[in-house]
Amino acid sequence: MVDLIVLLVLLALGYGFGRYAEKTHYRSIIKREKLLRKIPAIASKFPPMYRNPPETILVTGGIVISVDYFKRFVASLRNIIGGRITSYESLLDRARREAILRMKEQARDQGGSMVFNVKIETASISKGRKNTIGSVEVFAYGTALLIKSN
């Protein structure tokens, strides 16, 4: 009985705080993505040719994000029936967009105008119980071009 109450409290906490955190995070992501739209992140390896070649600088952005109790519970139910685990999808989507934003912010602060050869890497850095995901690290990096306007 006590176990059940603890479980329900944890689920409620996870649901409440997790939902709130996700909502505010998405709001800030969308706002900053609009601001940083002028710095494109491009996966191409070869930058265009310029008459006076730009300086380059390595820019990185990373985030470690944790899944909440409610999402983990829903995912464990999903594991029984199979199918898409949307609760994890939104988590990874948030983490990836945040990592790219941080990379772009670093590029902007250094005066870069675009980021080339963007690579994104995901690593699960700590496992939860029964090998479920605990926290995920997403790391994005690329080369920023510092184009001098002439």
């Binding site: 944890l10 906490l13 996870g14 705080f17 997790g18 955190a21 996700e22 995070h25 990185t60 990373g62 985030i63 470690v64 994000i65 944790s66 899944v67 909440d68 109790y69 999402k71 983990r72 988590l91 945040e98 850095i125 700590s126 939860g128 605990g134 926290s135 690290e137 790391f139």
Partner: peptide
Amino acid sequence: MASLKNIFGGELKGYTELLQESR
């Protein structure tokens, strides 16, 4: 802190910094 965050969800700022430093 991280195990608490595992209930509430969200960014683990301490880990983010730690990984940044190690990188």
